[in-house]
């Protein structure tokens, strides 16, 4: 089974997956060139997302990707749920990234890069994911959810990060009636250590 977050496997799978498209000149030189080309093709298609320099574990492109993705995945406007903009989702993802080791971070870099540019390379859109409009972005995510195991693995991983980063915030709990921590609120005493058995 291929690991969608293993950089070597990822690279091999990306190249295998792109093989049918290699008639395109910008893909012939490999994925790196393809990504550069896709970036160039889409340059200026929409406005850039502001980068928060405090979020040091996330690159600018990752911040943009997660910003866009969380708004597509969590369209809270008009619902009773906590507004996605009131929750520090991006900061929570940054915190999560900061705790990962270098290898996993490298794998995630590959995964986010592929997801961002896959819309151009694989998805039939002439735009990076972050520049798709809401309906196209949603359709793109769902196409990956129903795609091959590599796509499912990547999109599931990214979604889980976003969902966990949203629901871990206390502001999201009251709207779904979740109680959160209760021991202190209930004044529960610690029972301490159990007594040594009489044997």
């Amino acid at each position: 089974m291929a690991n969608p977050l293993n950089s070597k496997e990822l690279s091999a799978q990306i190249q295998a997956g792109l093989a049918p498209l290699n008639r395109r000149a910008f893909l012939k030189a490999g994925l790196g060139v393809a990504v550069a080309a896709s970036s160039a093709l889409t340059l200026g298609c929409s406005s850039e997302v502001a980068v928060d320099p405090a979020l040091k574990a996330l690159s600018a492109s990752q911040q943009a990707l997660f910003q866009r993705m969380m708004h597509v995945l969590l369209p809270t406007q008009g619902t009773t749920l906590a507004s996605v903009d009131s929750v520090p989702v991006l900061a929570n993802i940054n915190h999560l990234f900061a705790g990962l080791d270098a290898k996993v971070l490298g794998d995630l870099e590959g995964a986010t890069m592929l997801f961002e540019h896959g819309s151009l390379l694989l998805g039939g859109h002439f735009s990076r994911f972050t520049r798709l409009d809401d309906p196209d972005a949603l359709a793109y995510i769902e196409s990956w959810q129903n795609g091959n195991s590599l796509q499912r693995g990547i999109v599931t991983t990214l979604k889980k990060m976003i969902y966990a980063s949203y629901w871990r915030d206390e502001k999201t709990w009251a709207p779904v009636d979740y109680d959160g921590p209760v021991s202190d609120r209930w004044g529960l005493p610690s029972l301490g250590n159990s007594p040594l058995p009489a044997e």
Partner: peptide, 17 residues
């Protein structure tokens, strides 16, 4: 909600919410 929100997902976007 963290566990429910990650272990089950009957759809994306507004369906999920």
């Amino acid at each position: 909600p963290v566990e429910i929100g990650m272990s089950t997902e009957p759809g994306t976007g507004s369906v999920y919410l």
